Computed example of a mutant assay.
Amino acid sequence: MRKFRGDLLLPSALHATLWILVAVGFPAVISAIREDIGLAEDRFCRNTVQGRYLLSDDNGYVCTALSVDTWTRCCPVKGDQFSCQGCNLISQCCNSYEYCVSCCLDPSRTNKNLAMKVKIAKPITAGTYSSVFDFCAGRCRHNSASVVHENAYASDFHHCFSRQSNYSGSTEATFEARLTGINIVTGRLGESCTIACSSRGQSCVPNRLFLLNRCNM
């Protein structure tokens, strides 16, 4: 039997009443709390960094240095992914380092398994690339095949991602395979590659000349 002190409920009865009010008044709020909510993790990118104006990230996007996300280092997801702007798709050479990397990252152009077997340098002890991004970033830098007289570029298209290096533990691809898509024309004595090709409606591909100028062909 409840005890009253004047017109007031005893403290024990008052506490019981408050707990009932809490249980009845807030069930909707409590039931609305989800336990499976998780925060999305940021996806951090690697990028080419070195460009003064442009850079390419490992997602295959090219952007300006000012528009790159300062936290994730990723380019905005807009424009063309794996863009080959300014690239010759036959020679696999581009006039821009960043677009060379972007074009190279396209899975339809670069086979991951083959790319990761290419040696970083010619010595037998040289290691291989650890990712497709490393392969593209490394291959698109200048190499000896893109310069003449050691101080000038053979062509504006001097950023190339073709696999010219030896595979790890295997020999080079045949010369014929590496000249696929190239029409060979013969110029006159003293005539440059550019003039000889343009007179026939073609364009010169300087980085393939070293394949032709070999005695074992």
Rank of each mutant, 00 (worst) to 15 (best):
M116K: 13
M116E: 13
V118W: 08
V118K: 11
V118C: 10
K119D: 07
I120V: 15
A121K: 04
K122V: 15
I124C: 12
G127M: 01
G127E: 06
T128P: 01
Y129D: 03
Y129L: 06
S131H: 00
S131M: 02
D134C: 07
F135E: 06
A137T: 15
A137N: 15
A137W: 13
G138R: 08
R139F: 07
C140R: 04
H142E: 13
N143I: 12
S144Y: 04
A145R: 15
A145C: 07
A145H: 11
V147T: 10
V147D: 03
V148M: 04
H149C: 03
E150F: 08
N151H: 06
N151Y: 04
N151R: 05
A152T: 02
A152N: 01
A152F: 05
A152Q: 06
Y153N: 07
A154F: 00
S155L: 00
S155P: 01
S155C: 00
S155K: 00
D156Y: 10
D156M: 12
F157C: 00
H158A: 10
H158D: 06
H159I: 13
H159W: 10
C160I: 09
F161I: 09
F161E: 06
S162Q: 14
Q164F: 15
Q164Y: 15
N166G: 06
N166R: 15
Y167H: 09
S170N: 10
T174C: 05
F175P: 13
F175R: 14
F175H: 11
E176D: 11
E176R: 09
A177P: 02
A177H: 08
R178F: 05
L179I: 10
T180A: 12
T180I: 09
G181E: 01
G181A: 01
G181D: 01
I182C: 03
I184C: 03
V185S: 00
V185P: 00
G187A: 00
G187R: 02
G187Y: 05
L189I: 13
G190A: 02
S192N: 03
C193V: 07
C193N: 01
T194Y: 14
